[in-house]
């Protein structure tokens, strides 16, 4: 039982990995088994996915507008040279 059960820390890394790529069969089984047994990690998985979505939506960062403003500022400064 102990050998089949990976730690929460290890499960967390697999949760992260799974959102980017396909896990190996062995890793999938280990994670699945862990999540079956561990409600804390189930909550973490949900939140980890949410975090990923929020972070991706920040991908406009720096925003087009902020970027244009910076370009304008630099050009104005060059004019003063």
């Amino acid at each position: 039982m102990d050998k089949a059960m990976i730690s929460c820390e290890c499960a967390g890394q697999l949760i992260e990995k799974k959102q980017e790529m396909k896990l190996s069969l062995a890793d999938r089984m280990k994670l699945k088994f862990h999540l079956m047994m561990c409600s804390i990690c189930r909550t973490f998985e949900k939140q980890s996915k949410l975090l990923g979505e929020w972070l991706e939506q920040q991908s406009e960062f720096p925003s087009r507008k902020a970027l244009d403003k910076l370009k304008q500022k630099i050009k104005e400064q060059l004019d003063d040279e």
Binding site: C8, E9, I40
Partner: peptide, 14 residues
């Protein structure tokens, strides 16, 4: 976040 065995520390339970 985790104890030595890799279990969640209670203070960081999600």
């Amino acid at each position: 976040f985790f104890d030595k065995k890799g279990h969640w520390s209670p203070a960081f339970y999600p």
